[in-house]
Amino acid sequence: MDKFINHTGTAAPLRRSNVDTDQIIPAVYLKRVTRSGFEDGLFAAWRSDPEFVLNNAAYKSATILVAGVDFGTGSSREHAVWALQNYGFKVVISSRFADIFRGNSLKGGLLTVILDQSDVEAIWLAIEADPTTQIKVDLESRTVSYNGIVLGFAIDDYTRWRLMEGLDDIGLTIKNSDSIDAFEKTRATYKPATLPIRR
């Protein structure tokens, strides 16, 4: 995973709430067995609408998505994160994310930033007035800044450290294999096993 220290880019306003992961990428696009190539399915149903924000040339090169409340609800598909990343997004800003989507995004290096709804509205107005507005998202100082405005955001220290170091969770856990070995010796004996198969 690439390290995430900070990112500066332009942003696209997605003025919709409850954007579920079926909207981010419909199920028919989930059939690949690789992690790449999902950009064609991103917001597939809306992309055929010429009025859709990502079809506006002014937002074509946006790398930050600014979305309405409850972004990423529904299905656990990590393909939603991959689709956003494959398309070119590095950051998504919203006033609330669904839990599974947020977990997936932070594991995969797509930074999800939670700001107050009033701040989200203010950013929408700014980037609609001037789509070339540069927004800097700085993980080190935990701030979003644009047009001289600086907004702080919260992210736990552990996740921030892991993203800034670009570390893989599995490698970190395997370092604690001794704890897993020790735990397995204490498990309740009643727990079922899938093998051998019983019919």
Partner: peptide, 10 residues
Amino acid sequence: FGIGTSEVEH
């Protein structure tokens, strides 16, 4: 609870 693919691998 439901998990993403990175967590499945984990």
